[in-house]
């Protein structure tokens, strides 16, 4: 029994999503190998038996072929339920005809039986599924497993720098335009400050950005704010937007429609700021403030900085 962890990297370091998967392997005491898609200086120190480092940027198609090549040696292949991770794993699943479970929030491996829990119907329910078809492919929702790394004594992992065979690509990536790379990704951020229709325009979102920057977080939006053009589609949280599970989610002027809740309900701590004491968002919030966000949010930023 062995796990292959496919790790995403950022600025030559493993992303926290990779550390979460490694924590899972360490805690379950299951041997694992690490495949890093991009340079990761810290990859060797975490107890993987083998680190397979891919140092050049590969196309999704080539990365998928590489993972598919390694797949038969493992019981479970773990990756991140990011847009890049889900894309990669879907390609591997299609190529290898192995079943894939996306966006899993809990997993346990006993013998050859893998049990996963996966939110369905936008988190209105959770399905526990026993998977008997190994090797299985699983992507894990960011922040779902948590990072609990234990010190590893032996760091004598061997590195195979494997060069991927370049397939004749059908779709050719011609250009990449970075998003806001200085801030954390919405789906991976520990803190998300979201704004709704009540923000009235895109400039007003700056007061949310100021609070987010002061907490090391990022900004999300309701669909009403996106549809009105105050925020970009990439910022939308909800059933037809991103699913986020940060440590702290602050909903500013968001009513709490069921489709919005679907995208943020699993956040660890939810704070709601709304002028309407009966807004449904308070039903799922841990802390509530009945106030005008235009007054409260700048005050809060001031107190924190």
């Amino acid at each position: 029994m062995k796990i292959l962890v496919i790790a995403e990297t950022k600025e030559s370091k493993l992303k926290s999503t990779a550390l979460e998967m490694i924590s899972f392997c360490q805690q379950a005491k299951i041997p694992f190998d690490l495949l890093t898609l991009g340079p990761a200086e810290d990859a060797h120190t975490l107890g993987a038996e083998t680190c397979i480092g891919v140092h050049q940027i590969l196309s999704a198609r080539d990365s998928a072929s590489l993972v598919a090549q390694h797949l038969p040696a493992y019981t479970l292949i773990l990756g991140t339920a990011s847009l890049a991770g889900k894309d990669l794993f879907a390609r591997v699943s299609a190529q290898s005809m192995r079943h894939l479970y996306q966006d899993v929030t809990q997993l346990a491996l006993q013998g050859e039986t893998l049990t996963i829990t996966k939110p369905i119907y936008a988190g209105k329910a959770f399905a526990k599924i026993e998977v008997n078809t190994v090797p299985a492919l699983v992507t894990v929702r960011p922040n779902a497993l948590g990072v609990h790394l234990t010190e590893q004594e032996n760091t004598s992992t061997q590195t195979n720098k494997s060069e991927a065979t370049t397939t004749t690509d059908r779709e050719v990536l011609t250009k990449v335009e970075q998003g806001q790379s200085e801030r954390p990704d919405l789906t991976e951020s520990r803190v998300v400050i979201s704004g709704g229709r009540s923000l009235k325009n895109s400039e007003n979102f700056n007061i949310l950005w100021q609070l987010a920057d002061c907490l090391g977080g990022t900004v999300g939006a309701s669909r009403a704010a996106v549809d009105a053009g105050y925020a970009t589609h990439a910022m939308q949280v909800g059933q037809t937007g991103k699913t986020v599970s940060p440590k702290v989610y602050v909903a500013c002027g968001i009513s709490g429609a069921i489709q919005h809740l679907a995208g943020m309900k699993t956040s660890k701590h939810i704070i709601a700021i709304n002028t309407d004491p009966d807004a449904p968002i308070f039903k799922i919030a841990d802390y509530g403030i009945v106030s005008d966000l235009f007054e409260l949010v700048p005050k809060l930023t001031e107190k924190l900085s």
Partner: peptide, 25 residues
């Protein structure tokens, strides 16, 4: 075929933060 389904755990009541704007902040 899931072996079981679960509903999300019910949330505890929201803690309302009272006071004027400065106190709430």
């Amino acid at each position: 075929q899931p072996s079981t389904y679960e509903l999300p755990k019910a949330k505890e009541a929201c803690k309302m933060i009272k006071g004027d704007i400065a106190e709430q902040a």
